[in-house]
């Protein structure tokens, strides 16, 4: 009887141990792991993060977005996964080739989205280096380069912007005419003005503390927008708007992994988002108008 009990406990314990890792790793399946010059195909699996920088564009403006390539599955030489950049979450499918002791990946997005394209990647130990070319040649940016490092997404409620981050909004400038007298002549200049967030954005944690009206009253619209979107950044939301990408793309902890994180939000975060949205609307409608 005692023996039977022990064996039941043992079986239960065995299930308890095995069920967890299996759940987590069902997506990452490597059929045969062949080591090539010390590199294993295992190490390709996971999320690769870095800057996705334009190298050929119609407007010749330098631009870069943070991209995550998730390698989900490698079966023989077939690779599947997703690319997430600027709010665009796309599946890809491609081939893995071993050449000169290196892994080469050619990955293609389906082609039914305007911004789909093809990645050419060389895997160098701890680096995904390569280029991307769009299928559609009529879009603005047709070629991009990247160097990606492996970084797993982890939700961290304590993650914050810091005083080392640039808090200026470079994408929503206002033009104002200013006059100055130079050598007795009055000249009119058109100056660009950029708004900047206050230090509140690295003092207030909108995922940890329940925000009160009094916490938000003295904040400008940009502060409120950043506080709200820091919640989304913590959950790995990939921003469609350049306004928000510029603040988070260069932050180490930020790993874009999805274009919909609604289900991941905690109840505290949902509450704070509601309040922040309300204050953003109030700031938008009232800050510079006749009223209060």
């Amino acid at each position: 009887m005692k023996k039977l009990l022990i064996s039941i406990v043992a079986v239960a314990a065995f299930y308890a141990c095995t069920s967890k890792p299996v759940e987590k790793n069902t997506e990452n399946v490597v059929e045969d792991t062949i080591a090539v010059s010390g590199l294993s195909r295992d190490s390709l699996l996971g999320s690769w993060v870095g800057n996705f920088t334009a190298s050929e564009s119609k407007d010749n403006i330098e631009s870069s977005n943070k991209i995550t390539l998730i390698i989900k599955n490698i079966q023989k030489d077939v690779v599947t996964g997703r690319s997430i950049v600027a709010g665009n979450d796309r599946p890809f499918y491609g081939k893995l080739i071993e050449k000169d002791g290196e892994f080469h990946l050619t990955l293609e997005e389906p082609g039914d989205d305007k911004y789909d394209g093809k990645f050419d990647i060389i895997f160098k130990g701890d680096l995904f280096e390569g280029s991307w070319e769009s299928f559609n040649k009529n879009i603005n940016v047709t070629k991009r380069n990247f160097k990606l490092t492996k970084k797993a997404f982890v939700y961290d409620a304590t993650a914050m912007l810091t005083d080392k981050d640039d808090l200026t909004d470079w994408h929503n400038e206002k033009l104002k005419k200013d006059t100055a007298t130079v050598d007795g002549k009055v000249e009119v200049y058109e100056n660009q003005y950029y708004r900047s967030a206050s230090d509140a954005v690295y003092k207030i944690n909108s995922s940890m503390q329940e925000l009160k009206e009094s916490d938000l009253k003295n904040l400008r619209k940009l502060d409120l927008q950043i506080l709200r979107n820091t919640i989304f950044a913590r959950h790995g939301y990939s921003f469609k708007k350049e306004t928000y990408r510029q603040f988070f793309d260069y932050v180490d902890w930020y790993v874009p992994i999805s274009n919909n994180v609604e289900k991941e939000l905690t109840s505290l975060e949902k509450k704070n988002i509601k309040l922040l949205e309300k204050f953003e609307k109030y700031a938008e409608d009232n800050y510079d108008t006749f009223g209060r």
């Binding site: 003295n218 904040l219 400008r220 510079d288 006749f290 009223g291």
Partner: peptide, 20 residues
């Protein structure tokens, strides 16, 4: 009060409660 607000915000863009 509301006219001053418009003027101050136009000139200096202070934080909302500083204007207030």
């Amino acid at each position: 009060l509301r006219l001053w607000k418009v003027i101050l915000v136009y000139l200096f863009q202070p934080a909302p409660m500083d204007v207030y």
